[in-house]
Amino acid sequence: MVLSRPRIKICGITREEDAIAAAEAGADAIGLVFHPDSARYVPLEQARRIREALPPFVTTVGLFVNASGRFVEEALGHVPLDLLQFHGDESAAFCGGFGHPWIRAVRVRDSRVVVAAENTYYRALGLLTDAYDPDCYGGTGTTFNWDWLPSTPSMPLILAGGLTAENVGEAVRRVRPWAVDVSGGVESEPGIKSRRRINEFVREVTLTHETD
């Protein structure tokens, strides 16, 4: 049972002003995408500037998709990341090989996937559950069947996949996640966040928790 408001991560930040907007709205974390094939990819120097623009107590998450160990180390050398997020086909040994806290993203296509991931990636701080698409590693903008998620997960669940201000309230009530993760659902166009949509999303999560 989640006693406090679910934590909120605004992912796919590409601009300093969007990071500030997320922090001012009350987001707990932002995500920086280091996957070149993503519309929300951010170069390391820009990522560093975004990180420096943030106020205290906002977690900075670096998202990697099948990156080399050398590149992950390079990113850590450029940007003071608080948390690593692995969204590709990385092994548990790889994810835990950087001496840094990490979470594992899981593309959910049935009820067995999360249970298997809990057993394999048990050293992760949490599992980020996202919609399955055979052609991409996240950022699909689609939801999945939340009933596939375990009612009593063995580690914190971060719910992602097609979340918006319109459906996040239902998601919080049904799933009771530790955190929610949104990217496209708060954008005006890919990679460009909308301050209004960020505020609406955070407000909906907060109100749902307070009235539930």
Results as ranks from 00 to 15, higher is better:
P36A: 06
D37T: 05
S38P: 00
A39K: 02
Y41C: 08
P43Q: 01
L44H: 08
L44K: 06
E45S: 10
Q46S: 07
A47Q: 09
R49P: 09
R49S: 13
R49C: 14
P55N: 08
P56L: 10
P56H: 04
T59C: 13
T60L: 07
L63R: 02
V65W: 06
N66T: 01
N66W: 01
A67F: 00
F71C: 01
V72T: 13
E73T: 11
E74S: 05
V79T: 09
P80N: 00
P80G: 05
L81H: 02
D82C: 03
L84D: 08
Q85A: 03
D89F: 02
S91D: 06
S91Q: 09
A92Q: 07
A93N: 12
A93M: 07
F94A: 04
F94E: 05
C95E: 13
G97A: 12
F98G: 02
G99K: 05
G99Y: 04
H100L: 11
P101M: 07
W102T: 06
W102M: 06
R104E: 12
V106S: 03
R107V: 03
V108P: 04
V114W: 09
V114T: 07
V115N: 05
T120E: 12
A124V: 13
L125S: 02
G126P: 12
L127K: 11
A131R: 03
Y132P: 09
Y132C: 06
D133M: 00
P134N: 08
P134F: 05
P134W: 03
P134I: 04
C136E: 13
G138S: 10
G139F: 01
G139S: 01
G139I: 00
G139Q: 00
T140L: 03
T142W: 08
T143V: 10
D147Q: 13
W148F: 15
P150V: 14
P150H: 12
S151W: 13
T152I: 14
M155V: 10
P156F: 08
P156W: 07
P156R: 14
I158H: 11
I158F: 14
I158E: 09
I158L: 15
L159H: 00
A160K: 02
G162Y: 10
G162M: 04
A165S: 15
A165F: 15
E166K: 05
E166C: 02
E166F: 02
N167E: 11
V168F: 12
A171N: 07
R173M: 11
R173V: 02
R174Q: 15
V175W: 02
V175D: 09
P177L: 07
